[in-house]
Design a protein around this nucleic acid. Sequence first.
RNA 1: GCCCCCAUCGUCUAGCCCGGUCUAGGACACCGCCUUUUCACGGCGAUAACAGGGGUUCGAAUCCCCUUGGGGGUGCCA
Length: 482
Amino acid sequence: MTVRVRFAPSPTGYLHVGGGRTALYNYLFAKAKGGTYILRVEDTDEARSTREFEDLQIADLKWLGVHHTEGPDVGGPYGPYRQSERKQIYLDHAHKLIEMNKAYHCFCTEEELEARKKDLPPDENGSYHYDGKCRGLSKDESNKRLAAGEKAVIRLKAPAKTYVLKDHVRGEVNFPEGMVGDFVIIRSGGLPVFNFCNVIDDWLMKITHVIRAEEHLSNTVRQLMVYEAFGATPPEYAHISLLIGKDRQKLSKRHGATSVNQYREETYLPAAMTNYLCQLGWSHPEEKDIFTMDEVAPLFSIDRFNKSPAIFDVEKLNFMNGQHLKKLPIETLLKQADQAVPKDHPYHKQSPEWKMECLNFYKDHILFFKELPESMKVLFDDSFEMTPELTDIFSWETTPKIAEYLVGVVNNLTTPFITAAQFDDWSNHIKNELKIKGKPLFMGMRAVLTAQGHGKELKFILPLTPSEILKKRVNKIAGAMK
RNA sequence: GCCCCCAUCGUCUAGCCCGGUCUAGGACACCGCCUUUUCACGGCGAUAACAGGGGUUCGAAUCCCCUUGGGGGUGCCA
């Protein structure tokens, strides 16, 4: 049996990180089993679904590297893959159930239902199910009322029996008899309801494994009933734990960024995002924590899910982003940096060689691309501002000597950039001729050359600083020291 | 209310199914130290958990029950 899995989002908003994780697991499982991963759009909530959100979600999935081989945008042998385009299929199947006497039209209005619920004794109020008033209606009677234009929903006759679900992460889950009543499968407007079309589609699309969030666990009993009504075999299930916020409540906007899109805009790496998401509820068999999806795909198994909910905490994501950033090949680094650095930044005016050197250095010092402009500030900033720290350094007797020497050599520079070797010559000169070493040497040089009391290694920073900037800055500093 | 699920360091988790090798391992964060061309990276180290109570057993983080806590469902949302 070849594995077929799907991710079935509702296009009612941006792709949620939890959705991204579910999609990722399905994708990984398909890859591990040599199966097929498909994307199905569940847009039966007409009021909230839009095509824009569908496109945005697909774009985010693509960014994550979760690629489907069947879906609304690419087609496939089991299409259409948009539920709004499958209405007739659901209707036909619902009518089949009516013919089989496993479903029926119900003419009760919401007001009637509400009124009858109120009449119930208070203790039964909580577990109210549809009372089955229309269940016994004859087909003639139903057809007559339908013909007269009366609105009706279609309800499935819920069998009075217990159901057992064998779930890959929960184990055996028992659903006692009477847990649900006759539930709606087709709304009065003719649109199907999630618990119905989801099953029809999984069945017709030959889905073998359903990996989805735990919030669907309780509802699974309704879906089992639909499979049973058709005499179909349900797929295997794996209900994964939910993602929650710091306060252990369902992850929502108040916990910060919850959509994949937001992380994308904040220049997070998709490799870091997928690495992090993958480990929120699943563990690597060899206990590795930094890995790529290509590395983990062959090892991915449905049996290593953790049952408890996981708190989405960006701290570890940040760490992982730094780790993946370091490993990026230089071509990718260049491409990403071009996008992440603002267009008007002098970075863009530099040569390809310079950029390469610059990124090779900074990749080890940043966590995100968005830090790049700020980190590079010292390379292009010729402004100077006196700080208590600098005042202190300038007051040392060694510093004016260093300044005198450096002003001389810097002003005599003829090349656009200095080399690391040149920098070594400077420091050696100060050490050997001026007899200054240790802290006074390096702090002094840093203060005179960068106007900062601290920062990254001068040996790497200075060769990336244009000589022109260096000259302006050093002269300003020298002036201020007098 | 009723039903279902869950419970190991602050966080993500390993171990649990198949009790002993667990004075519970790793990672992030935090703290300390090393490097000192300083931050970061890296290296080393420290603090830190089996929710509580009963069983079963020679022995329980691991099996059973209860309590507590948390989450989900209970829709003509998905």
